[in-house]
Simulated scan of single mutants.
Amino acid sequence: MADTTTVAEQATQEPLTVDEAMIAVMQEIGPVGKNGRNEKQNYQFQAYDDIVAAAQGPMAKYGLRMLPEVIDQKHFVRGERTNVAILTVRYRIRGPRGDEIDTPIVVVGEGADVADKASNKAMTAAKKYAFKQAFEISDDTDDGDFKHPVAAGSPIDWYVAQLDRPNVWQNPNALASLLERATGAGHDGLHMPNRPGTTLRSVIEARGRKLVAEQQERQRRQAEEAEAMRAQMSAEYPEPSESYDAWDQAVPAQQAPQRPAAPA
């Protein structure tokens, strides 16, 4: 049955506490399906627009607001031209009485863009996961992120999956970017699975040194081969001792003019 309570009648009622309002919103939101799809990496996810649309109406109905505050931010360039922003955002949730939840929601959002939209994308990601945490929004099956082909149950599993990718394992720049990301997140000291005493940093640095050494060795061999080729060409095709004109006729070498003898 539809709610027929008027605005005037609602104004005379006692406002809900922030906890009561949050529970009421949670009851109305329900699961949000995985309607977004990443075609490049072949996985589905809960889209930001779907989550916001599901929460916006009930939040307005029960007088809830989410107030963001960026408490930490990191910016760097990944690869040659991808700008990356990692933002830590604290969300205070305020109810219709003006009271707030005891423990704010803290989330980390990451965004990447070749132009100037990295921070915007990071804020969007942070807001999406703040909504999911605050109102326990599920997709009625499994957590969407664990369906991501390169995600797993712990951070080190994700990094291992990245290292398994040929475009990362064979690329010194990609390895350096991965190590920079791990360092920024405090994950560079994580230990590799089934390799006691071996950290993520040591694996990436050792692999990077090997790739650089192999590249230098290739350049050295190429330089030697080029020099050998030049020597062979010089031996097989020496510079002619005589010059030739347009009709392929030898042109006598010009002799230096003789100086006249001094008078006796």
Results as ranks from 00 to 15, higher is better:
V160T: 11
S177Y: 06
M192N: 00
H187F: 15
D142W: 07
A161L: 10
R195F: 05
D145S: 11
G186Q: 02
M192Q: 00
D145C: 11
G184K: 02
D164W: 03
I137E: 00
D145R: 12
G186R: 02
T141M: 06
A151K: 04
P193L: 09
P149G: 09
A161Y: 05
H187N: 13
S154W: 01
N194T: 08
A182F: 02
P166W: 14
L175W: 06
G144M: 07
G153W: 06
E180S: 11
L200C: 11
D145T: 13
P193A: 07
D157R: 15
D188K: 03
W158Q: 09
V150D: 08
R195Q: 14
L175G: 04
V150S: 08
R195A: 13
T183C: 02
L178C: 06
Q162I: 13
A185N: 05
M192H: 01
P193E: 02
P155T: 14
W158P: 00
A182H: 02
G144I: 01
N194L: 13
D188S: 11
E180I: 03
L200K: 12
A151C: 09
N173D: 13
D143R: 03
S138W: 00
A152M: 09
M192C: 02
Y159V: 04
Y159I: 05
H191P: 00
M192R: 01
P166K: 13
I156Y: 01
A161D: 05
Q162C: 12
H148W: 04
T198A: 05
N167G: 10
G189E: 01
V168N: 04
K147G: 10
P155G: 10
N167Y: 08
A176V: 15
A161G: 09
P149E: 08
H148K: 13
D157C: 12
G197W: 06
D139P: 01
L200F: 05
D140A: 14
Y159F: 08
I137S: 00
S138F: 00
G186T: 03
P166V: 15
A182M: 05
